[in-house]
Design a protein around this nucleic acid. Structure first.
Lengths: 348, 348
DNA sequence: ATGAAAGCGCTAACAC
DNA sequence: GTGTTAGCGCTTTCAT
């Protein structure tokens, strides 16, 4: 039924070893036999048994992708989809399979990272995990001593000394700063900021950037100007609906929304109050998700270099898997980019 | 470094076989030894080597999920995210890993389905693939003769006799019919329909449902009332922007948009023309994606039973994997459900 | 350049 | 109940 190298060997009248060598392009085999064997394998419909091969070589040809725990939330998966598509594309080019898992099994509580490593199902690990808590510090150690190649991506590794892990992420402080600075440069002084509930490092950093930009420009920070939402469209909408009075009373003209989705909600809410964007309010989003182009006015936003993240991350993981010898960790903070579109305008 | 059953055997002073039996809950081992071995395995940090195990048992503990080719498109992945999350949840509960792949490697053109089966990387296959072309008919045959358990899901298997495959899908004809019928029941007679470019079976069926509902109610079908888009928000928006004249000239009052995303775009476009929904136009969407609730008015739409699909599909796959003997294929067409919200209204 | 044989870690007959 | 052994399909020394 399934054809193995033994079958090929029998038909070709050679040994298993020769078949193996031929199929693996070993230089230790005659050019002519190699070709003969390869042709034969083709016509017989041979494919390596991945398990046997892995058992023997300790290479699986698959990498694990660890999704963030909140991935199930609609807005979250939407946000990551583009990054994941890029990663998948890269892995496909390298003919690597990928196993998708959450940090822990949500039913048994067991660490999937640990299990995948120990059970030898993967050659490397791509970890998209916003914050590893101290509970998970054990796992970090485990990964390290297991020598399993890994790269953290997209999220700043807040759970440990940055220098001690491989990580590719974006500079959220800079992003928050640039967004706010842009509004200030356009003459806005009363700028509110819509961030996320919880204490995800990335959002904290964006807010720090917002604060820093205000301070650098001698604008007093008003803590009441900082709102919180669930990162989705509904949250932005709700924020406006519930605070329009406040916004008008305080002569707000600029808004920095730390996700594009919330910014879309903000615009929807504002429209319902008959407000014009950017005439009445200038809005800056964050992420530069594709969807933003489907709404008018097109949102000015902070672009996250997702393609770059994907490529750098995968390249690094491949290096690691292919055994580049070096104790140096690679640790890259990518700059975001302000994309000016139609939702911001100089104040008169 | 890694601990194997041999190590445990040595420490416990028993044979590998006994360790294996204990760890696999075989009844052929004494209760006391079982517990002793299990404790030992725990403290020694043992985990089965998946490759060795698979090689020996032909079970991998992972299933393959085949994504639709168009998955990379933003709107598409958004649309599937909820279904995938449900599936992943189910698999997690069963402690099954999942390998994600496209039907073919987009670089080498090689069939991933075939490769995954032959290389013995998976125990079963969940295939979300809208239409298998005649080129892929070979692959269908391959799957069948390989005896690899599989279930097609979400898409009606148009590429073959329905009775010959395991498939769980929704009744798109019924969905299209119900959406249109709802508008007719509300008094609308001039109803446009926004479907998708290309000839995806599901969209064709929705359109057939639209036609059938009109015919059943003695409303003449006007081919010009059928528009096409790319299933995303931008397409809905564009359709309105470009055809407002036509819409008004033809006294259109009802609109059936075959994706929620397009419906959102339609509403955005209509708002820009100062139109009120549902006062000026009644709109029915399709899919019932979560995002719909973030827009006002909340969209009346056709709910696709994604949770049911996920559960039925996974259950069936498990049956197959666990060797339920039966030559009967399971083939389920699930009904959609009309969800009436705020975007539709009785015509005066 | 090729073959023989051991071994990767586990399971499953088959003995005892 | 437990041990012994063969074998899953492949790679890789070590001979020749």
């Amino acid at each position: 039924m399934t054809v193995t190298i033994k079958d090929i060997a029998k038909v070709a009248g050679v040994s298993k070893a020769t078949v193996s060598r031929s199929l693996n392009d070993s230089p230790l085999v005659a050019e002519t036999t190699r070709e003969r064997i390869k042709d034969l394998a083709d016509t017989m419909g041979f494919e390596f048994n991945a398990n046997a091969r892995s058992l023997s070589t300790s290479k699986t040809g698959t990498v694990g992708i660890i999704y963030p725990e909140r991935f199930g939330k609609f807005g979250v998966s939407l946000y990551y989809s583009s990054l994941l598509n890029q990663i998948r594309d890269f892995l496909e080019k390298e003919e690597l399979d990928n196993i998708v898992a959450f940090p822990r099994n949500r039913y048994t509580g067991e660490s999937n990272i640990k299990r995948l490593i120990q059970s030898k199902k993967i050659d490397g690990l791509l970890i998209i995990h916003p914050n590893i808590t101290d509970v998970d510090q054990k796992i970090m150690n485990f990964i390290e001593i297991s020598k399993m190649p890994y790269v953290f991506l997209h999220h700043y590794p807040s759970f440990c000394d940055v220098e001690t892990v491989d990580a590719i992420y974006t500079n959220h402080f800079g992003g928050g700063y640039d967004a706010t600075k842009h509004l200030i440069d356009l003459g806005h002084r009363n700028i509110i900021c819509l961030t996320s509930y919880g204490d995800s490092m990335e959002f904290r950093q964006r807010t720090e950037g917002y604060r820093a930009a205000l301070i650098d420009n001698n604008i007093e920070i008003n803590e009441d100007f900082i709102f919180r939402g669930y990162r989705d469209i509904g949250s932005g909408y709700k924020m406006i609906k519930e605070n329009m009075d406040f916004i008008e009373k305080n002569n707000i003209t600029g808004m920095f929304s730390q996700t594009d989705l919330m910014a879309i909600g903000v615009m929807e809410g504002l429209k319902e109050f008959g407000k014009k964007i950017p005439d009445d309010y200038s809005i800056v989003g964050y992420d530069d998700i594709e969807m933003v182009m489907d709404f008018k006015p097109n949102l000015t936003t902070i672009h996250q270099p997702r393609e770059e993240i994907a490529i750098l991350t995968c390249n690094r993981l491949l290096e690691l898997i292919n055994g580049v010898k070096s104790n140096k960790k690679v640790n890259i903070s990518l700059s975001t980019k302000l994309i000016i579109r139609e939702s911001t305008k100089k104040i008169e």
